[in-house]
Design a protein around this nucleic acid. Structure first.
Length: 283
DNA sequence: ATGGGGGCCTGCCGGC
DNA sequence: TGCCGGCAGGCCCCCA
């Protein structure tokens, strides 16, 4: 699934089309995704103006007129595509209807936003804007990794005594928002920390070093337009490029990219997820 | 408190 | 060619 850089890439792609636009109507093609859709979703979206878009963690948030915000989470396989229905004989830009197009916003200017999600682990919700931050979805999410509130002091103080491995800690959205399996693997490689290392046994220096590394990786990935594995694409349909810069993710059995280290990258399972790491460079 | 496992879904890929 | 197991970017719940 899309992690923070992929969600940010989607957000940047769709914002210019959506902000200031108006929803003509919403097409809701099934009753639920991971959770049921909110009551009367289509009726509540009809004729709403889209004020602006923003992101919190891996959630895309659409601030609407009428004091409500549409929340979209892409889960593992969710995609957002923008298309345009062209009037007249030619329909080159009109999206082909796909099997898992569960939710479509038809906009006044003839653009359409399509949410496609084969595995249906995504979420769509409609929340009161004034209590957005305290809603069940967002209330327990930690600081944004690219904000100043995610800093060395916060990070080390929060986790220093945890009797958990560092992999699970970084995946915990309450500690820091938006990281997923790929970027945690990559950050741990750059920091030279084994995913199995217990947090309370890591030095203050090592733990602190993760903070700038996490920020650096996310910034790089966002500028590359995210990572495209199976199904991630920009809203325009373009691919992201950061996957070409993975040092360890998906590289089981290949040699470590550090010069003079020919150790083969290992894959282990932690908490049901694959961790990729170099046992020589990461301790 | 926390960590491990299972569940939710579909699709794809490799091996036999 | 076809079937089957394993795997996938997330998250939630239950159990020890």
């Amino acid at each position: 699934m899309p992690e923070l850089p992929e969600v940010e890439t989607v957000l940047r792609g769709i914002s210019p089309i959506l902000e200031g636009n108006k929803i003509e109507y919403a097409q809701v093609n099934r009753p639920d995704l991971r959770r049921p859709f909110p009551q009367n979703l289509a009726e509540r979206l009809k004729n709403r103006k889209i004020n602006f878009l923003h992101r919190r963690s891996k959630y895309i948030l659409m601030d609407l007129s009428g004091g409500e915000t549409l929340l979209i989470h892409l889960g593992m396989s969710g995609r957002i595509l923008i298309s345009q229905e062209v009037q007249g004989a030619f329909h080159h830009n009109k999206a082909q209807s796909q099997k898992h197009d569960h939710f479509i916003l038809h906009l006044k200017d003839s653009h359409q936003l399509t949410f496609n999600d084969p595995r249906r682990f995504g979420v769509i919700d409609l929340l009161e804007t004034r209590s957005l931050e305290t809603s069940a979805s967002l209330a327990h999410i930690g600081p944004e990794p690219l904000s100043n509130s995610f800093n060395e002091a916060y990070f080390t103080d929060t986790i220093k005594s945890k009797k958990t491995n560092i992999k699970a800690t970084l995946l915990d959205q309450r500690i820091v928002a938006g990281l997923g399996n790929i970027y945690v693997c990559e950050a741990l490689f750059r920091a030279g920390i084994s995913p199995k290392h217990q947090v309370y046994r890591l030095s203050h220096k090592k733990l602190s070093s993760l903070v700038p590394i996490i920020k650096e990786i996310l910034v790089e990935a966002i500028s590359a337009g995210g990572s495209s594995l199976r199904d991630f694409r920009h809203a325009s349909g373009d691919l992201g490029y950061f996957q070409h810069r993975f040092d360890v993710y998906g590289r089981e059995g290949q040699e470590c990219c550090n010069t003079e280290c020919k150790t083969k990258i290992r894959r282990i399972i932690q908490a049901g997820r694959s961790s990729f790491y170099c046992s020589n460079c990461q301790r």
